[in-house]
Design a protein around this nucleic acid. Sequence first.
DNA 1: ATAAAGGTTCCAGTCAGGGGAAGGTCAAGA
DNA 2: TCTTGACCTTCCCCTGACTGGAACCTTTAT
Lengths: 130, 130
Amino acid sequence: MNIGEVSTRANLPAKTIRYYEEIGLVKPLRDTNGYRAFRESDVHKLVFLGRARALGFTIEDCRALTALWEDKARASADVRNIASDHLIQIEAKIADLQAMHETLSHLVSSCAGDDRPDCPILQSLEKVTR
Amino acid sequence: MNIGEVSTRANLPAKTIRYYEEIGLVKPLRDTNGYRAFRESDVHKLVFLGRARALGFTIEDCRALTALWEDKARASADVRNIASDHLIQIEAKIADLQAMHETLSHLVSSCAGDDRPDCPILQSLEKVTR
DNA sequence: ATAAAGGTTCCAGTCAGGGGAAGGTCAAGA
DNA sequence: TCTTGACCTTCCCCTGACTGGAACCTTTAT
């Protein structure tokens, strides 16, 4: 199977798949013409990678997850640890963004948004109250 | 004022300040010895930049915001537009992260996390249901 | 025969800095 | 006066996870 079909089936850009090969996440075979020859198992793995990336796992997380995925004797605790670490990071990011959102939405709602130059947003950014 | 003091007062790493000069966000003078010579107004601006970056504005947003900040005749609407665009992006990110969080926390709580190899997290990542 | 569509590699760029080397400058203490 | 250590300078490479583009090769359809 050529990269185009894999791209469609795994819903990943061809560039991304080539990149994943470059960093050793997938290892497709090669045809005599130099084209990558993907097996079903490669597609399967790329789908897995796409799902994991969409959930915000880093590439290194993905490397660990696919290694566990391919290890039939793995302990589920190993997978769970990666996932719950990631969950904690997601929670921290959400909290950060919510704090930003609160501050900014206060500012936006306090700004007239008209032609006059006085703007509470800029006034607030000016303060040294970090 | 040398970069070290500015770094302390603006609460930004010296590397960051040099970078901001490189991309034209600040333009400190130079002493005869080649050291950067910052004015109070530079510090003021760097504090502003630090605040804006902490609120997640991009560098280009910051460039626009400082231009408006320094333009005494600006319309507050211009500032408000930048800020509310940014607010929308923050909201989208929060929604994304919350969706990830929901999916992942379901998975984590359904995983035994023991020594056995069967793991619902991996099983779910395997599905093509993107 | 030719053109379009698909494949290949390689290079460079993104964003917002961080790390570290090699070297110049300054202030304080012996 | 010398030296030590803190501070400053530029320079270049590195990050993550790709993306864009150039130059070139192969396959397929007309």
